[in-house]
Amino acid sequence: MNVLDAVAVFAAGVAAGGINSIVGSGSLVTFPTLVALGYPPVVANISNNLGLVPGNVSAAFGYREELRGQRDRLIRLGSASLVGALIGAVLLLSLPARAFDFIVPGLIMIALVLVIVQPRLQAWMQARREENGHRPHGGPLLWTGVLGTGVYGGYFGAAQGIVLIGLLGIAIDDDLQRLNGVKNALSAVVNGTAALLFIGVWAFGGTRINWWAVLLIALGSTLGGLLGAKVGRRIPPLILRGVIVVVGLVAIVNLLS
């Protein structure tokens, strides 16, 4: 890796960390950058996953105020993210590298629809909660949805934050910024779990990792995650929802191009 390549990867990491903190889909910056520099897709995917973990952690740390009082919610939903991430990572290591290419754009589009119609659906969900009792953790359907998102995140991960924030916003009656903090924490669980599995397989010679790319993305995404958290926590819900939709549409275009 020459100096220009290193600068490009680091800059992509900063951008991805900021995007992941505010919305999600930062992998749509770093992953294409690595592929454009000549890395094989699976190597780029795994190296990108490892590099973004510190950024996920820094983003969750930046939202620590919003995460206060949500320990039980994080434990319950975090278990779904952990199990899903393991399944997704195993699929990545055992299935063809482009097996999810036709599924990913559809998942993102569904997530964007959920974000757009969230206020109306949230009102409907609130009425059902008043009839059937309040579920601060979203119930079994949300747990299943978070599990499925973890599978997707463990396999590829781009735009998993958009899917998560869409699911959380509809299933849980809470402030969008608090849910964004939960999204960041769950994304950290997914990427961290997958990363541990990838490292374990790499240690036994079962896969390839470019550690220079991991280091540069890790440094960049950590900085971007902290900066993104400072900006994202000050964005009004309506504007944040608009940012989510725009980034999601860009993600779909990138994936289909």
Score class of each variant (00 low, 15 high):
L227P: 07
S221R: 15
L219T: 04
S25L: 09
F31T: 15
T33S: 08
P41A: 06
F156H: 10
P136W: 15
G38V: 09
V163S: 08
V231M: 09
G242N: 05
I252C: 06
Y155V: 04
V83S: 07
V151M: 10
V83L: 12
F156C: 10
D5N: 14
A80K: 01
F102Y: 10
L223T: 12
Y63M: 10
V117M: 08
L186A: 10
L95S: 03
A60C: 04
S25R: 04
A60I: 13
Y155M: 08
A185S: 06
P32I: 13
W124K: 15
G192R: 07
G26E: 14
V115G: 00
G17H: 06
H134K: 08
N48R: 05
N49I: 04
A44T: 06
D72A: 08
W211E: 07
V117I: 14
D175C: 00
L219R: 13
R71E: 07
L74R: 00
N184H: 02
G38T: 06
D72K: 05
I75M: 03
L256D: 00
S221Q: 14
V247G: 04
A80S: 07
T33A: 09
V115Y: 07
A159I: 07
G133M: 15
S81K: 02
G166N: 03
N2A: 05
P119Y: 03
N48H: 07
L67P: 00
V90M: 12
Q126N: 14
F198G: 11
A97S: 13
G145K: 05
V231C: 04
V245G: 00
R135H: 13
S257V: 02
L93N: 05
G181V: 01
V214N: 01
F100P: 00
A59P: 01
L82I: 05
L82C: 05
R128V: 09
V29E: 15
R71A: 02
R98D: 11
R241C: 02
N210F: 11
V163Y: 15
F10L: 14
L238F: 08
G62C: 08
S21L: 11
G69V: 02
V247P: 05
L249Y: 03
G17P: 11
R76N: 01
R120F: 11
G38D: 10
G166E: 05
F198Q: 08
V253E: 01
I108W: 07
R129I: 01
T222W: 12
V247C: 08
G62V: 06
R129Q: 15
N180Q: 01
V201C: 02
G55K: 14
L167Y: 08
F31E: 12
P105H: 13
I116V: 10
V231F: 10
R68W: 00
E130Q: 11
R135M: 13
L240N: 01
A203Y: 10
V53G: 03
A15L: 15
R128N: 06
L141P: 15
L167Q: 08
L226I: 11
P105I: 04
D175P: 00
V146D: 09
L112W: 14
I252F: 00
A194K: 03
W202P: 03
T30Y: 15
V104M: 14
G161T: 06
